[in-house]
């Protein structure tokens, strides 16, 4: 019996070496829906710069949003670092008001009221296989994708938050009826469905599809894995096309958080010139900085160039509008 007790104690100890106990340690707790591979360097820098210890829980954004909702007032989370306006909107009534000087760093259209603030931007693009198409062949508007010449050549991730946000934007921009017609028109071309953006870009690279509707930065991730000569390129869409939607990842501090002040410091840090430059100089995925005066990576359009691009829509409405979007996707056969 004593042997068994000893073994159990040893296992707990062994496991304890790997994980740090959360709770009273005073460390800043961040729930990150953004991938560790992409944002871990930011956390390290923040720790080094401020001496504040950070504990990060990485998981899917929406699952973390659901977790925060289930935890209620007992949530250990101080900061929620979300991948998309949808999951940020879902927890926004549990987030505290951010100080004015933090909010002021970012244009009002990239904020969720005063509860969360966008930290990096991305735009929807058409990714295409350069062996199959030249840039001129790629349509400048998503509305051209209903043409029968794209039969069997389109890749979409209909269950992914970024595609759903795009459809919501289209609904708000051109109305329900035209959106439905577009969805039905594309469906008639028998698009291929994928789970997320990355597999869509991979499919474009392999030639399984010719064009895919994705966020711009996945191209860089797939190139990092498959090599710089991978035959894929982004095509940025024309001005006011709904397909050129600009969305954001963002962060907010939880109402009632133990470390509210440090949480705000962290959000502020994400919006510092230095952190914003991280996306342009170091990060593989080349997102678009949201703070004025910081230029994106070469080949990626800047906010100024994108200004007026995409539909003029209010992110804070995405949460309430999502249900109708899902119904529409369900009715047109994109999801079950």
């Amino acid at each position: 019996m004593r042997k068994i007790t000893g073994m159990v104690a040893m296992l707990f100890l062994a496991a304890g070496c790997g994980g740090s106990e959360s709770g009273d340690s005073g460390a800043l707790v961040v729930y990150s829906g953004r991938e560790e591979e992409l944002v871990a360097p930011l956390f390290e820098r923040f720790e080094k710069e401020t001496g504040i210890e950070v504990e990060v829980r990485y998981a899917d954004s929406a699952e973390l949003a659901a977790t925060i909702a289930e935890e209620g007032d007992n949530s250990p989370a101080d900061v929620f670092f979300g991948q998309d306006p949808g999951s940020l909107g879902a927890v926004s009534d549990r987030l505290a008001e951010l100080p004015e000087e933090i909010l002021a760093r970012v244009d009002a259209r990239f904020r969720g009221g005063d509860r969360w603030v966008g930290t990096s931007g991305r735009t929807r693009v058409i990714v295409y296989n350069t062996d199959a198409l030249s840039e001129d062949d790629v349509p400048d508007s998503v509305f051209d994708l209903v043409d029968s010449r794209w039969q069997g050549k389109i890749g979409i991730a209909p269950t992914n938050a970024s595609f759903q946000a795009f459809v919501t934007a289209m609904r708000l921009d051109v109305g329900e009826e035209r959106t439905r017609q577009w969805l039905e028109g594309v469906m008639a071309n028998e698009p291929k469905f994928y789970e997320k953006n990355t597999p869509v870009v991979e499919a474009a690279a392999s030639g399984e599809i010719a064009v895919g509707l994705v966020n711009h930065y996945y191209l860089y991730l797939v190139r990092a894995e498959q090599g710089e000569d991978t035959p894929i390129e982004n095509h940025y869409l024309a001005g006011d096309d709904p397909g050129a939607l600009v969305t954001v990842a963002g962060a907010g501090v939880r109402e009632g958080a133990d470390n509210r002040e440090n949480g705000e410091r962290f959000v502020e840090f994400l919006l510092s010139d230095e952190s914003q430059r991280f996306y342009t100089e170091e990060a593989e995925e080349a997102e678009i900085p949201l703070v004025e005066g910081i230029e994106p990576k070469e080949g990626v359009p800047s906010l100024d160039e994108l200004s007026g691009a995409g539909p003029d829509v209010d992110f804070t409405r995405f949460g309430e509008e999502l249900e109708r979007t899902l119904e529409l996707l369900n009715e047109t056969g994109y999801t079950s």
Binding site: G18, S20, E21, Y58, V222
Partner: peptide, 20 residues
């Protein structure tokens, strides 16, 4: 999992989720 408690399964997830 406790925060920071990475396992082999979470490691696999961490890489495959970005296509690596």
């Amino acid at each position: 999992r406790p925060i920071g408690f990475d396992t082999l399964a979470t490691d696999i997830w961490r890489f495959t989720s970005v296509g690596a």
